[in-house]
């Protein structure tokens, strides 16, 4: 195919992305420097919003909460997704199909329905999880009533919906040439050796990308359970940054300042993503033939 002409087929996507992603991004960058409440035109306020942001303890605490939840949830999610993918990659037939479907299934449950489910599972009086923990004599963290209990509750809600990462890991695993596994099998390598010295290192660039993508996913996915399950509480213990943005924009109507918060969130995410992305690019470069 001659490249130039085929490229035009991407135009609808570019226009759509412009409308719902690029234009809003640009607008956010502008609104972040304005007072805007949605009734009158935005009024330029210079760096006022940013000065307010710097002193906004609630925002920085929410960033901390988001960071903590992500720092716990992302490794668990990646381990689950990649672990399932490696176990299932060579599993064909009915068992493989059932395993793949099961691993993806939680991800097709609507977020709100998922949240309702966990609202019950974690409930101190009626919930099966506290009941099960009591039954085996384990300590029961107050999943909806204590700050750390609520954060762990949030992590649990986030841990299962890893379908996208699972599928990407599955596809990545299948790009590793079979001959490499034959070569290592002839050398007498154990499954553990093969996984840690061949599979994971070869997949490393993609795993890093997955980690970054998952960070983004967790930050946004934490919103619904934080809104519906923990309500940001107790005492703002699960008030994540997106929830704060939402409250500022749609409950207080401070669209200007909410834009400032959005842009700050974007910048912070980019900063957190930069190192893994850079590493991934370097590793991919090394392996490329």
């Amino acid at each position: 195919m001659r490249g130039a002409r085929a490229g035009w087929l991407g135009l609808p996507f570019l226009l759509g992305a412009f409308l719902v992603v690029l234009l809003p991004l640009g607008l956010a960058a502008y609104l972040a420097f304005t007072d805007y409440y949605g009734f009158e035109a935005p009024r330029w306020s210079g760096t006022d919003n940013w000065a307010r942001l710097a002193g906004d303890g609630q925002f920085w605490r929410s960033v901390g909460v988001t960071g903590v939840v992500a720092a716990i949830a992302v490794p668990i999610r990646i381990a689950l997704a990649v672990g399932a993918a490696l176990l299932l990659a060579r599993q064909g037939g009915a068992a493989g199909a059932i395993g793949r479907t099961a691993a993806y299934l939680p991800s097709v449950v609507p977020e709100a329905a998922w949240a309702l489910l966990w609202l019950w599972i974690l409930n101190p009086l009626y919930g099966p999880l506290p009941a099960a923990l009591r039954a085996v004599g384990a300590p029961v963290p107050g999943f909806l009533t204590e700050p750390w209990g609520a954060r762990w509750g949030l992590v649990l809600v986030l841990a299962f919906q890893v379908g996208e990462a699972f599928v990407v890991a599955l596809a990545a695993r299948r790009t590793v040439p079979g001959a490499l596994y034959d070569a290592l099998a002839v050398e007498g390598a154990s499954p553990w050796f093969t996984t840690t010295r061949l599979t994971l290192p070869v997949m490393a660039p993609i795993l890093l990308l997955l980690t970054v993508r998952d960070l983004v996913v967790v930050v946004q996915n934490a919103f619904v359970p934080a809104l519906l399950v923990t309500g940001g509480g107790p005492g703002n213990a699960t008030l994540t940054a997106p929830l704060l943005v939402y409250e500022r924009a749609f409950e207080y109507g401070e669209l200007g300042y909410a834009s400032t918060l959005s842009v700050a969130l974007l910048v912070l995410t980019a900063a957190a993503a930069a190192l893994p992305l850079w590493l991934a690019a370097r590793l991919a470069q090394r392996q490329r033939r």
Binding site: G7, G10, F13, L14, A17, L19, V20, V21, L22, L23, P24, L25, L27, A28, L31, G38, V212, R213, V216, V219, Q220, F223, A241, P242, V245, Y246, A249, L255, A258, S259, S262, V263, L265, L266, T269, A270, A273
Partner: peptide, 24 residues
């Protein structure tokens, strides 16, 4: 350009777009 825009979309947190998207 296409790859760049797709990657950008994948790595922009949705929360950063809520407010300006509503405005647009």
């Amino acid at each position: 350009l296409l790859v760049g825009v797709a990657l950008l979309m994948a790595f922009v947190p949705a929360a950063a777009l809520w407010v300006p998207r509503v405005v647009v």
